Amino acid sequence: MNATIHDNRTTVYWHRELPPLEAELVAEHIVEATSSRVSGRLAHRDELWDQCYRELMANAERRLVQEVARLGGHFAHVHDEVIHPKHDDAAGEAWLHGRFSYMLYRRPQESR
């Protein structure tokens, strides 16, 4: 994933990407996101997995941007993610669920 740019400023930094050096650490948080449900199972179906993964990551980025704003921060640095396939046998559907751990940062001049 690449850094998310919001209003011409980068908001979400993924794994090895780092927020600005002057950013002040606020706290660690977690967001969860899911993809849409698709018919069938995701195992051994690369195209469905890829579709669900792209949607999951887009949804996670949107959630991260929302949470950064809600918590009064300016940047999120995602440092861990756990993604699991889910399925509903009764409905014959599958989807991906992700849990993303991140550090929230603020710009120094606005944190005091």
Rank of each mutant, 00 (worst) to 15 (best):
Met1Tyr: 11
Thr4Ala: 15
Ile5Lys: 11
Asp7Lys: 14
Asn8Met: 09
Asn8Arg: 06
Trp14Leu: 08
His15Trp: 14
Arg16Glu: 11
Arg16Ile: 02
Glu17Met: 14
Leu18Asn: 15
Pro20Met: 07
Leu21Arg: 15
Leu21Ala: 15
Glu22Gln: 14
Glu22Met: 07
Ala23Pro: 02
Ala23Gln: 08
Glu24Ala: 08
Ala27Glu: 15
Ala27Leu: 11
Glu28Asn: 15
His29Ser: 06
His29Arg: 11
Ile30Pro: 02
Val31Gln: 13
Glu32Gly: 07
Ala33Phe: 11
Thr34Lys: 09
Ser36Val: 01
Ser36Ala: 14
Ser39Asp: 10
Ser39Glu: 10
Gly40Ala: 05
Ala43Phe: 11
Ala43Thr: 15
His44Gln: 10
Asp46Cys: 00
Glu47Met: 11
Trp49Gly: 00
Cys52Ser: 13
Glu55Cys: 02
Glu55Met: 07
Leu56Asn: 06
Leu56Tyr: 04
Met57Gln: 07
Ala58Trp: 10
Asn59His: 13
Ala60His: 06
Glu61Ala: 14
Arg62Asp: 13
Arg63Met: 12
Val68Arg: 09
Ala69Val: 10
Arg70Tyr: 13
Leu71Ile: 04
His74Asn: 14
His77Thr: 06
His79Cys: 00
Asp80Met: 11
Glu81Phe: 04
His84Gln: 05
Pro85Ala: 09
Lys86Gly: 00
His87Cys: 04
His87Trp: 04
Asp88Ser: 00
Ala90Asn: 11
Ala91Gln: 13
Gly92Tyr: 03
Gly92Trp: 03
Glu93Tyr: 04
Glu93Ala: 01
Ala94Lys: 00
Ala94Pro: 07
Trp95Glu: 09
Trp95Leu: 07
His97Lys: 06
Arg99Ile: 10
Phe100Val: 03
Phe100Glu: 09
Tyr102Ala: 06
Tyr102Asn: 03
Met103Ala: 12
Leu104Cys: 03
Arg106Asp: 02
Arg107Cys: 08
Pro108Lys: 02
Glu110Lys: 05
